[in-house]
Design a protein around this nucleic acid. Sequence first.
DNA 1: GGGGCAATCAAACGTCCGTTTGAAACGGAC
DNA 2: GTCCGTTTCAAACGGACGTTTGATTGCCCC
Lengths: 243, 243
Amino acid sequence: MPPPETRERILDSAEELFAERGIGETSLRALTRHARVNLAAVHYHFGSKEGLLDAVVERLATPINTARCRALDRLDQSAHTDAPTILWAFFQPVIARMEALERLGRTATLARLLARIESQPRAEVARLFERHFGDASRRCVEALAHALPELDRTVVAERFHFANGVLMALFSDRPGFEAHRGDTPVPRRDLPARAREAIAFATAGLCARSACSSLPMLVPATRPPSSAPDHGPDGTRIEVDSR
Amino acid sequence: MPPPETRERILDSAEELFAERGIGETSLRALTRHARVNLAAVHYHFGSKEGLLDAVVERLATPINTARCRALDRLDQSAHTDAPTILWAFFQPVIARMEALERLGRTATLARLLARIESQPRAEVARLFERHFGDASRRCVEALAHALPELDRTVVAERFHFANGVLMALFSDRPGFEAHRGDTPVPRRDLPARAREAIAFATAGLCARSACSSLPMLVPATRPPSSAPDHGPDGTRIEVDSR
DNA sequence: GGGGCAATCAAACGTCCGTTTGAAACGGAC
DNA sequence: GTCCGTTTCAAACGGACGTTTGATTGCCCC
Protein backbone atom coordinates (compact mmCIF):
# COMPACT_ATOMS: atom_id res chain seq x y z
CA MET A 1 0.00 0.00 0.00
CA PRO A 2 1.30 3.44 -0.86
CA PRO A 3 1.51 5.83 2.06
CA PRO A 4 -1.78 5.89 3.92
CA GLU A 5 -1.47 2.69 5.88
CA THR A 6 -0.54 4.37 9.14
CA ARG A 7 -3.38 6.83 8.88
CA GLU A 8 -5.92 4.07 8.43
CA ARG A 9 -4.53 2.03 11.26
CA ILE A 10 -4.82 4.99 13.58
CA LEU A 11 -8.41 5.54 12.50
CA ASP A 12 -9.25 1.89 13.01
CA SER A 13 -7.83 1.80 16.49
CA ALA A 14 -9.38 5.13 17.38
CA GLU A 15 -12.81 4.01 16.24
CA GLU A 16 -12.50 0.86 18.27
CA LEU A 17 -10.97 2.29 21.43
CA PHE A 18 -12.92 5.54 21.56
CA ALA A 19 -16.07 3.46 21.35
CA GLU A 20 -14.97 0.81 23.76
CA ARG A 21 -13.34 2.86 26.50
CA GLY A 22 -14.35 6.42 25.85
CA ILE A 23 -12.58 9.35 24.31
CA GLY A 24 -11.18 10.95 27.41
CA GLU A 25 -10.32 7.53 28.80
CA THR A 26 -8.32 6.52 25.74
CA SER A 27 -4.79 7.87 25.74
CA LEU A 28 -2.92 8.44 22.53
CA ARG A 29 -0.20 6.24 23.89
CA ALA A 30 -2.54 3.29 24.32
CA LEU A 31 -4.07 4.06 20.96
CA THR A 32 -0.81 4.18 19.04
CA ARG A 33 0.40 1.08 20.83
CA HIS A 34 -2.81 -0.67 19.77
CA ALA A 35 -2.33 0.49 16.19
CA ARG A 36 1.39 -0.37 16.29
CA VAL A 37 2.26 3.10 15.17
CA ASN A 38 4.51 5.80 16.48
CA LEU A 39 3.00 8.19 18.99
CA ALA A 40 3.81 11.29 16.99
CA ALA A 41 2.01 9.94 13.94
CA VAL A 42 -1.30 11.05 15.39
CA HIS A 43 -0.27 14.67 15.45
CA TYR A 44 1.42 14.41 12.10
CA HIS A 45 -1.72 13.06 10.39
CA PHE A 46 -4.50 14.65 12.40
CA GLY A 47 -2.98 17.63 14.17
CA SER A 48 -4.41 16.76 17.57
CA LYS A 49 -6.53 14.28 19.44
CA GLU A 50 -9.60 16.29 18.63
CA GLY A 51 -8.70 16.31 14.95
CA LEU A 52 -8.45 12.54 15.16
CA LEU A 53 -11.91 12.30 16.69
CA ASP A 54 -13.26 14.45 13.91
CA ALA A 55 -11.71 12.21 11.29
CA VAL A 56 -13.09 9.13 12.98
CA VAL A 57 -16.59 10.53 12.95
CA GLU A 58 -16.23 11.65 9.40
CA ARG A 59 -15.13 8.25 8.17
CA LEU A 60 -17.95 6.61 10.08
CA ALA A 61 -20.76 9.00 9.24
CA THR A 62 -20.10 10.09 5.68
CA PRO A 63 -21.01 6.85 3.90
CA ILE A 64 -24.10 6.50 6.05
CA ASN A 65 -25.21 10.03 5.40
CA THR A 66 -24.66 9.87 1.65
CA ALA A 67 -26.43 6.53 1.44
CA ARG A 68 -29.36 8.03 3.27
CA CYS A 69 -29.50 11.01 0.95
CA ARG A 70 -29.27 8.78 -2.09
CA ALA A 71 -32.13 6.62 -0.87
CA LEU A 72 -34.23 9.69 -0.13
CA ASP A 73 -33.40 10.99 -3.61
CA ARG A 74 -34.68 7.79 -5.10
CA LEU A 75 -37.86 8.07 -3.05
CA ASP A 76 -38.44 11.66 -4.10
CA GLN A 77 -39.04 10.59 -7.67
CA SER A 78 -40.94 7.43 -6.87
CA ALA A 79 -44.49 6.44 -6.07
CA HIS A 80 -43.64 4.97 -2.67
CA THR A 81 -43.65 7.93 -0.38
CA ASP A 82 -45.43 6.48 2.62
CA ALA A 83 -43.89 7.04 6.02
CA PRO A 84 -42.67 3.48 6.63
CA THR A 85 -40.73 3.48 3.39
CA ILE A 86 -39.14 6.81 4.20
CA LEU A 87 -38.17 5.63 7.63
CA TRP A 88 -36.73 2.52 6.09
CA ALA A 89 -34.62 4.58 3.72
CA PHE A 90 -33.25 6.39 6.74
CA PHE A 91 -32.67 3.32 8.89
CA GLN A 92 -31.32 0.92 6.32
CA PRO A 93 -27.85 2.37 5.71
CA VAL A 94 -26.96 2.48 9.34
CA ILE A 95 -28.38 -0.96 10.03
CA ALA A 96 -26.36 -2.30 7.14
CA ARG A 97 -23.26 -0.71 8.56
CA MET A 98 -24.06 -2.15 11.92
CA GLU A 99 -24.36 -5.62 10.46
CA ALA A 100 -20.98 -5.19 8.81
CA LEU A 101 -19.49 -4.21 12.14
CA GLU A 102 -21.13 -7.13 13.87
CA ARG A 103 -19.67 -9.48 11.33
CA LEU A 104 -16.31 -8.10 12.44
CA GLY A 105 -17.16 -8.82 16.04
CA ARG A 106 -17.56 -5.17 16.95
CA THR A 107 -21.23 -5.07 17.76
CA ALA A 108 -21.62 -2.02 19.86
CA THR A 109 -19.03 0.18 18.21
CA LEU A 110 -21.48 2.41 16.46
CA ALA A 111 -23.79 3.05 19.37
CA ARG A 112 -21.07 3.61 21.87
CA LEU A 113 -19.18 5.96 19.69
CA LEU A 114 -22.31 7.99 19.09
CA ALA A 115 -23.08 7.96 22.77
CA ARG A 116 -19.56 9.15 23.51
CA ILE A 117 -19.78 11.89 21.01
CA GLU A 118 -23.18 12.97 22.13
CA SER A 119 -21.76 13.54 25.55
CA GLN A 120 -19.05 15.94 24.48
CA PRO A 121 -19.23 19.62 25.33
CA ARG A 122 -22.23 21.26 23.77
CA ALA A 123 -20.98 23.36 20.91
CA GLU A 124 -18.62 20.74 19.65
CA VAL A 125 -21.17 17.97 19.42
CA ALA A 126 -23.64 20.28 17.73
CA ARG A 127 -21.07 21.05 15.10
CA LEU A 128 -20.22 17.40 14.59
CA PHE A 129 -23.76 16.12 14.36
CA GLU A 130 -24.93 18.91 12.16
CA ARG A 131 -22.05 18.43 9.80
CA HIS A 132 -22.26 14.69 9.50
CA PHE A 133 -25.94 13.89 9.98
CA GLY A 134 -27.73 17.16 9.43
CA ASP A 135 -28.47 16.85 5.73
CA ALA A 136 -30.11 13.48 5.72
CA SER A 137 -31.98 14.15 8.94
CA ARG A 138 -33.55 17.36 7.72
CA ARG A 139 -34.45 15.79 4.41
CA CYS A 140 -36.02 12.84 6.17
CA VAL A 141 -38.12 15.07 8.37
CA GLU A 142 -39.23 16.96 5.32
CA ALA A 143 -40.25 13.81 3.49
CA LEU A 144 -42.04 12.49 6.55
CA ALA A 145 -43.94 15.72 7.03
CA HIS A 146 -45.08 15.45 3.44
CA ALA A 147 -46.12 11.83 3.89
CA LEU A 148 -47.98 12.55 7.13
CA PRO A 149 -49.94 15.70 6.34
CA GLU A 150 -52.33 15.11 9.22
CA LEU A 151 -49.52 15.70 11.72
CA ASP A 152 -48.08 19.04 12.71
CA ARG A 153 -44.53 19.49 11.52
CA THR A 154 -43.27 19.90 15.05
CA VAL A 155 -44.82 16.60 15.98
CA VAL A 156 -43.21 14.94 12.99
CA ALA A 157 -39.83 16.28 14.04
CA GLU A 158 -40.30 15.07 17.58
CA ARG A 159 -41.34 11.62 16.46
CA PHE A 160 -38.42 11.47 14.10
CA HIS A 161 -36.22 12.24 17.07
CA PHE A 162 -37.81 9.36 18.97
CA ALA A 163 -37.29 7.07 16.00
CA ASN A 164 -33.62 7.90 16.22
CA GLY A 165 -33.78 6.89 19.84
CA VAL A 166 -35.13 3.52 18.79
CA LEU A 167 -32.25 3.21 16.37
CA MET A 168 -29.79 3.97 19.14
CA ALA A 169 -31.46 1.35 21.29
CA LEU A 170 -31.08 -1.14 18.47
CA PHE A 171 -27.36 -0.39 18.38
CA SER A 172 -26.80 -0.75 22.05
CA ASP A 173 -27.32 -4.02 23.74
CA ARG A 174 -27.68 -2.62 27.18
CA PRO A 175 -27.35 -5.51 29.57
CA GLY A 176 -30.01 -6.26 32.12
CA PHE A 177 -32.92 -5.63 29.83
CA GLU A 178 -32.99 -9.05 28.27
CA ALA A 179 -36.09 -11.15 28.27
CA HIS A 180 -36.52 -13.54 31.16
CA ARG A 181 -38.78 -16.47 31.72
CA GLY A 182 -38.63 -17.09 35.41
CA ASP A 183 -34.94 -17.08 36.18
CA THR A 184 -33.55 -18.27 32.88
CA PRO A 185 -32.83 -15.59 30.32
CA VAL A 186 -34.37 -16.02 26.90
CA PRO A 187 -31.71 -16.00 24.17
CA ARG A 188 -31.66 -12.89 22.02
CA ARG A 189 -32.75 -13.00 18.44
CA ASP A 190 -30.27 -12.18 15.71
CA LEU A 191 -29.71 -8.70 14.42
CA PRO A 192 -31.96 -8.82 11.32
CA ALA A 193 -34.90 -9.94 13.43
CA ARG A 194 -34.26 -7.23 15.97
CA ALA A 195 -33.83 -4.67 13.22
CA ARG A 196 -37.19 -5.65 11.73
CA GLU A 197 -38.70 -5.32 15.17
CA ALA A 198 -37.17 -1.88 15.58
CA ILE A 199 -38.55 -0.73 12.27
CA ALA A 200 -41.99 -2.03 13.17
CA PHE A 201 -41.77 -0.25 16.50
CA ALA A 202 -40.63 3.06 15.07
CA THR A 203 -43.10 2.92 12.22
CA ALA A 204 -46.00 2.37 14.57
CA GLY A 205 -44.82 5.19 16.78
CA LEU A 206 -44.33 7.50 13.86
CA CYS A 207 -47.83 6.91 12.53
CA ALA A 208 -49.55 6.87 15.92
CA ARG A 209 -52.93 8.54 16.01
CA SER A 210 -52.19 11.41 18.40
CA ALA A 211 -50.55 12.17 21.69
CA CYS A 212 -52.31 10.01 24.23
CA SER A 213 -55.04 11.75 26.15
CA SER A 214 -56.48 8.75 27.92
CA LEU A 215 -53.46 8.45 30.17
CA PRO A 216 -53.20 9.96 33.63
CA MET A 217 -52.40 13.62 33.22
CA LEU A 218 -48.74 14.37 33.22
CA VAL A 219 -48.64 17.74 34.84
CA PRO A 220 -50.36 17.13 38.17
CA ALA A 221 -48.67 13.79 38.69
CA THR A 222 -45.37 15.28 37.76
CA ARG A 223 -43.83 15.20 41.19
CA PRO A 224 -41.97 12.05 42.11
CA PRO A 225 -44.32 9.71 43.94
CA SER A 226 -42.03 9.71 46.93
CA SER A 227 -43.20 12.02 49.67
CA ALA A 228 -40.31 14.32 48.95
CA PRO A 229 -40.29 18.01 49.78
CA ASP A 230 -39.55 20.52 47.06
CA HIS A 231 -35.97 19.46 46.96
CA GLY A 232 -35.79 15.73 47.46
CA PRO A 233 -33.80 14.30 50.32
CA ASP A 234 -31.38 12.77 47.90
CA GLY A 235 -30.14 14.85 45.10
CA THR A 236 -32.75 17.29 43.91
CA ARG A 237 -31.30 20.07 45.93
CA ILE A 238 -31.12 23.50 44.43
CA GLU A 239 -27.51 24.28 44.00
CA VAL A 240 -26.26 27.35 45.72
CA ASP A 241 -23.29 28.49 43.78
CA SER A 242 -22.10 26.03 41.26
CA ARG A 243 -20.15 28.36 39.05
CA MET B 1 -26.03 21.20 58.93
CA PRO B 2 -24.40 18.31 60.69
CA PRO B 3 -21.52 16.72 58.87
CA PRO B 4 -22.62 15.61 55.43
CA GLU B 5 -22.55 18.92 53.63
CA THR B 6 -19.27 18.29 51.87
CA ARG B 7 -20.38 14.91 50.68
CA GLU B 8 -23.49 16.32 49.10
CA ARG B 9 -21.64 19.14 47.44
CA ILE B 10 -19.25 16.71 45.86
CA LEU B 11 -22.14 14.61 44.61
CA ASP B 12 -23.87 17.66 43.19
CA SER B 13 -20.83 18.83 41.32
CA ALA B 14 -20.00 15.34 40.13
CA GLU B 15 -23.50 14.83 38.78
CA GLU B 16 -23.32 18.10 36.94
CA LEU B 17 -19.80 17.89 35.61
CA PHE B 18 -19.76 14.20 34.78
CA ALA B 19 -22.87 14.78 32.73
CA GLU B 20 -21.73 18.00 31.15
CA ARG B 21 -18.12 17.20 30.31
CA GLY B 22 -17.79 13.47 30.69
CA ILE B 23 -16.32 11.28 33.36
CA GLY B 24 -12.84 10.88 32.01
CA GLU B 25 -12.78 14.52 31.00
CA THR B 26 -13.68 15.77 34.47
CA SER B 27 -10.69 15.95 36.79
CA LEU B 28 -11.12 15.69 40.51
CA ARG B 29 -9.31 18.99 40.79
CA ALA B 30 -11.86 20.77 38.64
CA LEU B 31 -14.64 18.95 40.43
CA THR B 32 -13.52 19.86 43.93
CA ARG B 33 -12.85 23.42 42.85
CA HIS B 34 -16.40 23.57 41.50
CA ALA B 35 -17.77 22.18 44.74
CA ARG B 36 -15.48 24.44 46.81
CA VAL B 37 -14.20 21.47 48.69
CA ASN B 38 -10.78 20.10 49.40
CA LEU B 39 -9.33 17.74 46.86
CA ALA B 40 -8.73 14.96 49.34
CA ALA B 41 -12.36 15.00 50.43
CA VAL B 42 -13.31 12.88 47.44
CA HIS B 43 -11.11 10.04 48.53
CA TYR B 44 -12.10 10.46 52.12
CA HIS B 45 -15.81 10.16 51.36
CA PHE B 46 -15.87 7.91 48.33
CA GLY B 47 -12.55 6.11 48.27
CA SER B 48 -11.81 6.82 44.64
CA LYS B 49 -13.13 8.50 41.55
CA GLU B 50 -14.91 5.32 40.58
CA GLY B 51 -16.52 5.14 44.00
CA LEU B 52 -17.74 8.66 43.47
CA LEU B 53 -19.28 7.72 40.14
CA ASP B 54 -21.02 4.83 41.78
CA ALA B 55 -22.45 7.08 44.47
CA VAL B 56 -23.62 9.58 41.87
CA VAL B 57 -25.49 6.92 39.96
CA GLU B 58 -26.93 5.51 43.13
CA ARG B 59 -28.26 8.84 44.27
CA LEU B 60 -29.72 9.48 40.84
CA ALA B 61 -31.20 6.08 40.12
CA THR B 62 -32.45 4.83 43.46
CA PRO B 63 -35.47 7.13 43.85
CA ILE B 64 -36.41 6.53 40.22
CA ASN B 65 -36.14 2.80 40.57
CA THR B 66 -38.10 2.60 43.81
CA ALA B 67 -40.80 4.89 42.43
CA ARG B 68 -41.10 2.62 39.44
CA CYS B 69 -41.39 -0.47 41.58
CA ARG B 70 -43.99 1.18 43.79
CA ALA B 71 -46.06 2.18 40.77
CA LEU B 72 -45.83 -1.33 39.36
CA ASP B 73 -46.84 -2.70 42.75
CA ARG B 74 -49.93 -0.53 42.69
CA LEU B 75 -50.74 -1.75 39.20
CA ASP B 76 -50.34 -5.38 40.18
CA GLN B 77 -53.35 -5.19 42.47
CA SER B 78 -55.43 -2.97 40.24
CA ALA B 79 -57.76 -3.37 37.31
CA HIS B 80 -55.71 -1.18 34.99
CA THR B 81 -53.16 -3.55 33.59
CA ASP B 82 -53.13 -2.52 29.95
CA ALA B 83 -49.78 -1.92 28.31
CA PRO B 84 -50.01 1.88 28.08
CA THR B 85 -50.65 2.19 31.79
CA ILE B 86 -47.73 -0.08 32.59
CA LEU B 87 -45.44 1.88 30.33
CA TRP B 88 -46.64 5.05 31.96
CA ALA B 89 -45.79 3.68 35.38
CA PHE B 90 -42.31 3.04 34.13
CA PHE B 91 -41.83 6.36 32.36
CA GLN B 92 -43.42 8.72 34.84
CA PRO B 93 -40.84 8.69 37.63
CA VAL B 94 -37.98 9.50 35.34
CA ILE B 95 -39.92 12.12 33.44
CA ALA B 96 -40.84 13.74 36.74
CA ARG B 97 -37.21 13.75 37.73
CA MET B 98 -36.30 15.24 34.40
CA GLU B 99 -38.78 18.04 34.90
CA ALA B 100 -37.31 18.75 38.29
CA LEU B 101 -33.87 18.96 36.74
CA GLU B 102 -35.11 21.21 34.00
CA ARG B 103 -36.59 23.54 36.55
CA LEU B 104 -33.07 23.80 37.93
CA GLY B 105 -31.76 24.65 34.49
CA ARG B 106 -30.01 21.32 34.08
CA THR B 107 -31.99 19.90 31.22
CA ALA B 108 -29.75 17.32 29.75
CA THR B 109 -28.10 16.12 32.92
CA LEU B 110 -29.94 12.86 33.11
CA ALA B 111 -29.50 11.80 29.51
CA ARG B 112 -25.89 12.74 29.30
CA LEU B 113 -24.98 11.05 32.49
CA LEU B 114 -26.68 7.88 31.34
CA ALA B 115 -24.97 8.12 27.99
CA ARG B 116 -21.64 8.59 29.72
CA ILE B 117 -22.21 5.65 31.94
CA GLU B 118 -23.42 3.45 29.17
CA SER B 119 -20.13 4.00 27.43
CA GLN B 120 -17.96 2.78 30.25
CA PRO B 121 -16.09 -0.49 30.02
CA ARG B 122 -18.43 -3.41 29.65
CA ALA B 123 -18.47 -5.25 32.93
CA GLU B 124 -18.69 -2.10 34.97
CA VAL B 125 -21.70 -0.67 33.20
CA ALA B 126 -23.47 -4.00 33.33
CA ARG B 127 -22.99 -4.05 37.05
CA LEU B 128 -24.19 -0.48 37.46
CA PHE B 129 -27.29 -0.79 35.31
CA GLU B 130 -28.27 -4.11 36.72
CA ARG B 131 -27.92 -2.89 40.25
CA HIS B 132 -29.74 0.39 39.80
CA PHE B 133 -32.32 -0.30 37.10
CA GLY B 134 -32.57 -4.05 36.92
CA ASP B 135 -35.44 -4.62 39.34
CA ALA B 136 -37.94 -2.23 37.85
CA SER B 137 -37.00 -3.14 34.29
CA ARG B 138 -37.53 -6.83 34.78
CA ARG B 139 -40.77 -6.26 36.59
CA CYS B 140 -41.98 -3.97 33.82
CA VAL B 141 -41.18 -6.52 31.13
CA GLU B 142 -43.04 -9.12 33.13
CA ALA B 143 -46.12 -6.95 33.48
CA LEU B 144 -46.02 -6.03 29.81
CA ALA B 145 -45.73 -9.64 28.75
CA HIS B 146 -48.80 -10.38 30.83
CA ALA B 147 -50.69 -7.46 29.30
CA LEU B 148 -49.71 -8.40 25.76
CA PRO B 149 -50.27 -12.14 25.64
CA GLU B 150 -50.39 -12.17 21.86
CA LEU B 151 -46.70 -11.20 21.71
CA ASP B 152 -43.78 -13.50 22.30
CA ARG B 153 -41.91 -12.63 25.44
CA THR B 154 -38.73 -12.00 23.51
CA VAL B 155 -40.55 -9.50 21.35
CA VAL B 156 -41.92 -7.79 24.42
CA ALA B 157 -38.43 -7.48 25.85
CA GLU B 158 -37.10 -6.06 22.61
CA ARG B 159 -39.87 -3.53 22.35
CA PHE B 160 -39.35 -2.56 25.96
CA HIS B 161 -35.74 -1.94 25.09
CA PHE B 162 -36.83 0.30 22.23
CA ALA B 163 -39.19 2.15 24.53
CA ASN B 164 -36.21 2.90 26.70
CA GLY B 165 -34.51 4.29 23.63
CA VAL B 166 -37.44 6.63 23.15
CA LEU B 167 -37.07 7.71 26.75
CA MET B 168 -33.40 8.43 26.20
CA ALA B 169 -34.27 10.44 23.12
CA LEU B 170 -36.71 12.43 25.19
CA PHE B 171 -33.92 13.23 27.63
CA SER B 172 -31.46 14.30 25.04
CA ASP B 173 -32.10 17.31 22.96
CA ARG B 174 -29.69 16.38 20.25
CA PRO B 175 -29.17 19.47 18.14
CA GLY B 176 -29.79 19.46 14.43
CA PHE B 177 -32.91 17.38 14.54
CA GLU B 178 -35.28 20.21 15.26
CA ALA B 179 -38.24 20.93 13.08
CA HIS B 180 -37.73 23.33 10.23
CA ARG B 181 -40.11 25.15 7.99
CA GLY B 182 -38.01 26.33 5.14
CA ASP B 183 -35.01 27.92 6.78
CA THR B 184 -36.54 29.04 10.03
CA PRO B 185 -36.54 26.52 12.83
CA VAL B 186 -39.84 25.80 14.51
CA PRO B 187 -39.65 26.44 18.25
CA ARG B 188 -39.67 23.34 20.41
CA ARG B 189 -42.65 22.48 22.51
CA ASP B 190 -42.29 22.33 26.26
CA LEU B 191 -41.30 19.23 28.11
CA PRO B 192 -44.76 17.97 29.14
CA ALA B 193 -45.94 18.13 25.54
CA ARG B 194 -42.88 16.29 24.33
CA ALA B 195 -43.22 13.76 27.12
CA ARG B 196 -46.82 13.06 26.10
CA GLU B 197 -45.64 12.66 22.54
CA ALA B 198 -42.94 10.23 23.64
CA ILE B 199 -45.46 8.16 25.55
CA ALA B 200 -47.77 8.08 22.57
CA PHE B 201 -44.89 7.04 20.36
CA ALA B 202 -43.65 4.32 22.65
CA THR B 203 -47.13 3.02 23.35
CA ALA B 204 -47.92 2.69 19.67
CA GLY B 205 -44.63 0.94 19.07
CA LEU B 206 -45.15 -1.39 22.00
CA CYS B 207 -48.58 -2.44 20.83
CA ALA B 208 -47.72 -2.63 17.12
CA ARG B 209 -49.32 -5.48 15.25
CA SER B 210 -46.19 -7.43 14.24
CA ALA B 211 -42.75 -6.99 12.77
CA CYS B 212 -43.31 -5.40 9.41
CA SER B 213 -43.33 -7.81 6.52
CA SER B 214 -44.45 -5.43 3.81
CA LEU B 215 -41.14 -3.59 3.85
CA PRO B 216 -38.27 -4.39 1.53
CA MET B 217 -36.57 -7.45 2.92
CA LEU B 218 -33.73 -6.64 5.21
CA VAL B 219 -31.36 -9.45 4.57
CA PRO B 220 -30.82 -9.21 0.81
CA ALA B 221 -30.78 -5.43 0.86
CA THR B 222 -28.46 -5.47 3.78
CA ARG B 223 -25.44 -4.20 1.94
CA PRO B 224 -25.06 -0.45 1.70
CA PRO B 225 -26.92 0.85 -1.33
CA SER B 226 -23.74 2.23 -2.77
CA SER B 227 -22.27 0.06 -5.48
CA ALA B 228 -19.42 -0.62 -3.19
CA PRO B 229 -17.23 -3.70 -3.28
CA ASP B 230 -16.94 -5.70 -0.13
CA HIS B 231 -15.18 -2.84 1.51
CA GLY B 232 -16.72 0.49 0.63
CA PRO B 233 -14.72 3.33 -0.86
CA ASP B 234 -14.86 5.42 2.23
CA GLY B 235 -14.79 3.77 5.55
CA THR B 236 -16.68 0.53 5.24
CA ARG B 237 -13.47 -1.32 4.69
CA ILE B 238 -12.98 -4.61 6.42
CA GLU B 239 -10.01 -4.12 8.61
CA VAL B 240 -7.07 -6.34 8.10
CA ASP B 241 -5.39 -6.42 11.43
CA SER B 242 -6.92 -4.12 13.97
CA ARG B 243 -6.04 -6.19 16.96
C1' DG C 1 -9.87 20.54 79.99
C1' DG C 2 -8.38 16.58 77.87
C1' DG C 3 -8.96 12.14 75.11
C1' DG C 4 -10.94 10.48 70.90
C1' DC C 5 -12.94 10.47 66.66
C1' DA C 6 -14.63 12.24 62.29
C1' DA C 7 -13.65 15.67 59.01
C1' DT C 8 -10.75 18.99 56.58
C1' DC C 9 -6.64 20.81 54.83
C1' DA C 10 -2.07 21.95 52.18
C1' DA C 11 1.43 19.66 50.21
C1' DA C 12 3.56 16.25 47.96
C1' DC C 13 3.81 11.45 45.61
C1' DG C 14 4.83 9.08 41.19
C1' DT C 15 2.61 8.46 36.83
C1' DC C 16 0.71 9.43 32.63
C1' DC C 17 -1.04 12.83 29.64
C1' DG C 18 -1.09 15.59 24.90
C1' DT C 19 2.13 17.76 22.38
C1' DT C 20 6.70 19.23 20.40
C1' DT C 21 11.19 18.57 18.59
C1' DG C 22 14.94 17.38 15.67
C1' DA C 23 16.93 13.83 13.50
C1' DA C 24 16.60 9.63 10.72
C1' DA C 25 14.59 6.82 6.88
C1' DC C 26 12.31 6.57 2.60
C1' DG C 27 11.39 7.29 -2.37
C1' DG C 28 11.11 9.49 -6.74
C1' DA C 29 13.16 13.43 -9.90
C1' DC C 30 16.94 15.14 -12.02
C1' DG D 1 24.74 10.73 -6.47
C1' DT D 2 22.10 14.34 -4.60
C1' DC D 3 18.39 16.85 -3.55
C1' DC D 4 13.64 17.34 -1.59
C1' DG D 5 9.29 16.49 0.22
C1' DT D 6 6.91 13.15 2.86
C1' DT D 7 6.68 10.08 6.53
C1' DT D 8 8.48 7.73 10.70
C1' DC D 9 10.95 7.62 14.90
C1' DA D 10 12.96 8.06 19.90
C1' DA D 11 13.18 11.29 23.24
C1' DA D 12 11.88 14.83 25.78
C1' DC D 13 8.66 18.93 27.28
C1' DG D 14 5.71 20.97 30.91
C1' DG D 15 1.71 20.15 33.04
C1' DA D 16 -2.25 17.77 34.98
C1' DC D 17 -3.80 13.62 36.71
C1' DG D 18 -5.54 10.31 40.78
C1' DT D 19 -3.99 9.24 45.04
C1' DT D 20 -1.54 9.43 49.60
C1' DT D 21 0.24 11.49 53.63
C1' DG D 22 0.49 13.74 58.03
C1' DA D 23 -0.76 17.52 60.43
C1' DT D 24 -4.75 20.27 61.97
C1' DT D 25 -9.37 21.43 63.09
C1' DG D 26 -13.91 21.06 65.36
C1' DC D 27 -16.83 18.72 68.51
C1' DC D 28 -18.90 15.50 71.75
C1' DC D 29 -18.31 12.68 75.94
C1' DC D 30 -16.26 12.11 80.26
